[in-house]
Amino acid sequence: ELIWEQYTVTLQKDSKRGFGIAVSGGRDNPHFENGETSIVISDVLPGGPADGLLQENDRVVMVNGTPMEDVLHSFAVQQLRKSGKVAAIVVKRPRK
């Protein structure tokens, strides 16, 4: 059984690379294997702001206090874009 651990990460936006993450998932883009609608970190740019803080497959729980459960992919992207220079991101990942 999976035990999820929650992490809060504060990312500083890089002028060229943004937050250095890509997200997939969302209500309109469920996971191809299990139908899960979570917003998921799909890519972490090496050397970017999120490197060492976020991991691929982290589930995004909140962005700047806005819940990311059962939202559209575009909504999640929009929340990240409009967060200015700093984003507080809450993620969960299975305990190893």
Rank of each mutant, 00 (worst) to 15 (best):
L72E: 09
V23W: 04
T66A: 08
E56L: 12
E69D: 07
F19S: 01
G35N: 15
G35W: 03
L45M: 09
S24E: 05
E56A: 10
P30V: 06
Q79W: 05
T66W: 05
A50F: 00
Q12T: 15
G26C: 01
E1I: 13
L54N: 00
P67F: 11
Q55M: 15
L80S: 01
A87F: 02
K85N: 10
I39N: 00
M62C: 10
R59C: 04
G84K: 14
F19E: 00
M68S: 02
P67T: 08
A50Q: 00
L11E: 04
T66G: 03
E33P: 13
I3Y: 13
P49D: 04
P46L: 11
V71W: 00
S83G: 10
D28K: 04
Q79Y: 08
D51V: 10
Q79P: 04
E5K: 06
Q6H: 10
Q55E: 15
Q6F: 10
D43T: 13
I21A: 02
F75K: 06
R27N: 12
K13S: 10
S38I: 02
R17D: 10
E56H: 11
L45N: 07
Y7R: 12
K16H: 14
Q12E: 08
N64M: 00
N29D: 03
G18N: 12
V91I: 10
L80Q: 01
F32S: 15
D70T: 05
G20H: 00
A76R: 01
V90H: 06
V9Q: 04
S24H: 09
P67Q: 15
G18C: 07
P46W: 06
G18L: 06
K16R: 12
E36Q: 06
K92Y: 07
S42Y: 04
A22V: 13
G35V: 03
H31Q: 12
R95H: 08
G52N: 08
M62R: 08
S24W: 11
I39Y: 00
I39P: 02
N34F: 04
L2W: 09
G20Q: 00
G26F: 02
R95G: 13
E5M: 05
E69H: 09
N29R: 11
Q78G: 14
V40F: 07
H31C: 07
I41A: 01
E5H: 07
G48I: 00
L72V: 09
A50W: 00
K85V: 09
V90W: 05
K96R: 09
E33D: 13
V77S: 08
V9R: 03
G65D: 06
E56F: 09
V44N: 03
V91Y: 08
W4Q: 05
A50C: 05
V60G: 02
V60D: 02
D58E: 05
R59S: 03
I41K: 03
I39V: 13
H31V: 04
L72S: 11
D70A: 11
K13P: 12
L53S: 07
V63C: 06
V23K: 01
G25A: 00
I21L: 13
L80V: 09
G18K: 08
V60A: 02
I3K: 10
E56R: 12
G48T: 05
G18Y: 05
R17Y: 11
W4V: 04
E56Q: 15
T37S: 14
L54E: 02
T37E: 07
I89L: 11
T66N: 13
N29G: 15
E33W: 07
G18I: 06
F19Y: 07
L53P: 03
L45I: 09
P49G: 01
R81H: 14
P67W: 15
H73F: 08
K85C: 13
I21P: 03
P30C: 05
H31T: 09
K16S: 09
N29F: 03
L2M: 15
V91T: 02
Q12M: 10
P67Y: 14
I41H: 03
K82H: 12
I39E: 01
L53M: 10
I89A: 01
V90A: 09
Q79E: 11
R93Y: 02
L54C: 04
K92I: 05
Q12N: 15
V91C: 05
P49N: 03
E33M: 14
E36D: 15
I3N: 10
F19L: 13
M68P: 00
I21E: 00
L2Y: 15
H73N: 14
R81K: 13
F75T: 11
G20I: 04
V61Y: 06
V9T: 10
P67M: 13
Y7K: 09
N64I: 03
H31D: 15
L80R: 01
A22S: 15
F19R: 01
S83L: 08
V77R: 09
E1G: 03
M68K: 02
M62H: 04
G48R: 00
F19D: 01
G84C: 13
N57F: 10
G47D: 07
Q79D: 04
N57A: 10
I41F: 04
F75E: 12
K82I: 11
S38H: 10
P67G: 06
S74Q: 11
L11W: 00
K13L: 11
L45W: 06
T8K: 09
M62T: 12
N64A: 03
M68L: 12
E56I: 07
L53C: 07
R59T: 06
G35L: 05
G26V: 01
E33L: 10
Q55F: 11
K92E: 15
D70F: 05
G26W: 01
Y7M: 12
A88L: 12
K96Y: 11
K13Q: 13
F75Q: 13
R27F: 12
R93S: 03
A22W: 13
A22P: 00
K85F: 09
V40Y: 12
A87W: 00
L72N: 15
G20V: 02
N34Q: 04
S38A: 13
P67H: 08
H31M: 15
G20F: 00
R95W: 06
G47W: 03
R93K: 05
G18T: 10
A22R: 10
R17C: 15
T10A: 10
Q55N: 11
F19A: 03
G65W: 06
M68D: 00
S24R: 14
E36K: 03
K92N: 10
V44S: 02
H31A: 15
P46Q: 08
S24N: 13
V23D: 00
T8D: 15
T10V: 05
H73D: 06
F32Y: 13
G25K: 01
S38Y: 08
V23I: 11
A88P: 04
G52V: 02
E56P: 10
A88M: 08
V91N: 01
T8L: 07
G18E: 15
R27P: 04
V40C: 05
P94Y: 13
V44M: 04
S15M: 10
M68N: 01
V40S: 04
V86T: 15
D28T: 06
G84T: 12
V23S: 02
I21M: 13
G65A: 08
H73I: 11
G47T: 05
R81I: 10
E1M: 11
D14G: 15
S74T: 12
L54S: 02
G35F: 05
V86F: 09
V91E: 02
R81D: 14
V61M: 14
L11D: 00
L80N: 02
R95C: 14
S42W: 05
D58S: 01
V86D: 14
L11Y: 00
E5F: 05
M68H: 01
E69F: 07
G65Q: 14
Q12P: 09
T37C: 12
G47F: 07
F75M: 05
K82P: 04
G47L: 08
A76C: 11
G26Q: 05
Y7T: 13
V61H: 12
G48N: 03
W4F: 13
H31K: 07
S15C: 11
K92G: 04
K13Y: 09
R17F: 14
K96A: 09
P46D: 15
I39W: 02
S74C: 12
A50T: 01
F19Q: 01
P49Y: 01
A76E: 02
I3D: 08
E36I: 04
S38G: 05
L54T: 03
W4A: 04
R81W: 13
E5Y: 04
G26L: 01
G65V: 02
V60F: 02
V86E: 10
P94V: 09
